[in-house]
Amino acid sequence: MSLPVRDRISMALLPILAGMLLFIPSAAFAAQAASHPLADPAGWWIWVLLLFIFSFFLGIISVLAGVGGGVLFVPIVSSFFPFHLDFVRGAGLLVALSGALSAGPSLMRKGLADLKLSLPLSLIGSISSIAGAIVGLTMAAEKVQLLLGIAIIAIAAVMLKSGKSGFPEVKEPDIIARTLGISGSYYEPTIDRVVDWKIHKMPIGLVLFFFIGFIGGMFGMGAGWANVPVLNLLMGAPLKVAVATSGLVLSMNGAAAAWVYLYKGAVLPLIAVPAVSGVMLGSKIGAKLLTKVNTRAIRVIVIIMMVIAGLRSIMKGMGI
């Protein structure tokens, strides 16, 4: 009995993922030994190359799993690479930001990413993401690492539990959405018709976006894992609009928080650039593979990876 092609590709990705999690930590541990070649600063290029390769595969996997690169980047790189958490968070924000920037134009032209929906949410979120970044950079790295581990496992649980709704029903927009004139339409090829949408429960959404922005800024992660369920399941935006608009919000929140990291000297081009370019190249490959692999299986694998990275982050935070 032979497996379908998409399942075989998914199975083939498993050893790559396992390798990423098994090989990189042993290399990182080895690098801590003074006699090891990786501990020699002259071997910097090995880490930069490894980071690029890792980010490239992360870019592929994050598209296939439907999660932002930032949420996986920070816990895994901070646990398995020799860089301090400050620099990893700085790079993580730029990873999330760049992904949102490059995908933005086409999603906006198709009417999927909505500027008017994103602006009030990003205004609240960018203020709180700056606050989160300040708090995160003030706290001891061990505490942030511990909290990051807990947050990542909680996010994995949210991803496992939260459902999604392609076209949620919104009977009546709330007063804020009405006043701001937030509604839109886009062409949905799967049903060959133009979908009109509106939203509701904006006040609760604004409060939640405040907290999401804070967490994103504090841990240097993208926040698609939280933005999308709030926009889709709570506020009633169609799933595609929620995903695309989440990116637009992220591009503004990420930029605000990134400046705190830039001023604190927590952005090193040597770490940020290979991460950003690796994830962006990988995302393009991932988008091409999207129809050829079993995305549900990949999503489960990614959730397992998040739990492992979260546990490792907790252990590192506890000094184990």
Binding site: S106, M108, K110, D114, L115, G184, Y187
Partner: peptide, 16 residues
């Protein structure tokens, strides 16, 4: 049908 979708001018300017 894609053309039927009404996209604000401001959104197109932002996208460009």
């Amino acid at each position: 049908k894609q053309k039927e979708t009404a996209i604000d001018r401001v959104q197109l300017v932002y996208a460009n």
